[in-house]
């Protein structure tokens, strides 16, 4: 049992866990390659490919020109011919320069071909704010990808999920958008986040896409969230527990497909719902979660649902302004109290 113990004790950063999954898949599948800006010698601006160039060489860990339309399209064509590309869009915010390849090609070819052509490709991207990178480098935008049909969207929050969802994404025969939050990667050059380090299983590890995780059980209120916000939610849940409020935290993990069953089961139990999303408030993930409950049975909610998201404003630069719009602990705690008091 020594081996099992060492497995459970092994702790990695989210970045390292993500890289480990890529490394393991590349070892056994020669059709997998990783491509993007600064993914070679630099190792990925957010540590998504650290050490991979040394391990696999420039034929499989490929630095591209700053031509997202060309290289994402290249990934699509290679996937159509049976390769399994992982293509990195450095920031989710950069979708604007290459969205046509993503939503009109990557996401639609399987459908338009009536199922005869598959696009087994992973599109990775960094998301999220909290470090004053301004309105063009701090967005999440996962709700936008999830809104457009034809791509799966996964959003890991823990090192273990980063590994398991990456393995699943590479093996999936569909395009998978893999959004990692900069704040959970464990980067040396950002504020330390204790949650960026966690236990990660060794060897092959798959987390099925489309299955949410109950990150904390509780009976009073359901808090549905994703990515970095999962950790903020858990912190707040511990705090309010001392005040006698037990929060059930659902880590969605995957937006497409969305595990509505786990959500509904929890809301059925608690009768209260708080949604926390670092993406924009309107027309997005939080609305979809509330609609899921409303469409199933509005009577499940004993009190009105609460949404904590970015209030339809670009992400501000100044620290105080940015933290005023991000769904941080204080706003989450307030929403929980509102829900419980109502």
């Amino acid at each position: 049992m020594t081996i099992t113990e060492s497995r459970t004790e092994r702790r990695l950063t989210t970045s390292r866990a993500m890289v480990e999954a890529i490394e393991q898949e590349m070892e056994h599948d020669p059709s997998v390659f990783y491509m993007g800006e600064d993914v070679g010698a630099y190792g990925g601006i957010f540590g998504s490919t650290t050490g991979l160039l040394e391990r696999f060489g420039p034929q499989r860990i490929i630095d591209t020109p700053i031509s997202e339309t060309a290289f994402i399209g290249l990934g699509i064509g290679a996937a159509v011919e049976g390769m399994r590309p992982i293509v990195e869009l450095m920031f989710a915010d950069f979708m604007g320069v290459c969205l046509d390849q993503i939503y009109n090609h990557m996401a639609k070819i399987h459908f338009e071909s009536g199922g005869s052509v598959q696009v087994p490709m992973v599109l990775t991207m960094a998301a999220g704010g909290g470090y004053s990178d301004g309105a063009q480098h701090s967005q999440c935008l996962w709700g936008t990808f999830a809104h457009l049909p034809g791509m799966k969207v996964v959003v890991p929050s823990t090192p273990a999920d980063a590994k398991g969802l990456m393995t699943a994404a590479i093996r999936d025969d569909n395009p998978v958008v893999y959004v990692f939050h900069k704040g959970v990667m464990g980067l040396a050059w950002m504020a330390k986040n204790a949650h960026a380090l966690g236990e990660v299983p060794e060897g092959e590890y798959v987390v099925p896409i489309g299955k949410a995780r109950v990150a904390r059980e509780g009976s009073d209120v359901t808090l549905a969230t994703l990515s970095l916000s999962v950790h903020h939610a858990l912190d707040v849940a511990e705090k309010v527990s001392e005040q006698g409020i037990e929060v059930e935290v659902i880590d969605l993990r995957s937006l497409v497909p969305l595990d509505r069953d786990t959500l509904l089961e929890s809301v059925g139990k608690t009768g209260r719902l708080v949604v926390v999303d670092e993406d924009y408030l309107s027309y997005g993930v939080s609305g979809e979660i509330v609609a899921t409950v409303a469409e199933t049975d509005p009577g499940m909610l004993r009190v009105p649902a609460q949404r904590v998201a970015v209030p339809d404003v670009p992400i501000p630069y100044a620290h105080a302004l940015e933290y005023a719009v991000l769904p941080r602990q204080q706003r989450i705690e307030q929403a929980i109290h509102t829900a419980v008091r109502a």
Binding site: I72, M83, N104
Partner: peptide, 15 residues
Amino acid sequence: IIAEGYPPALGQAFA
């Protein structure tokens, strides 16, 4: 979509 058929061709050629 105008010109957007070029990039996927690169990928086929790459493969």
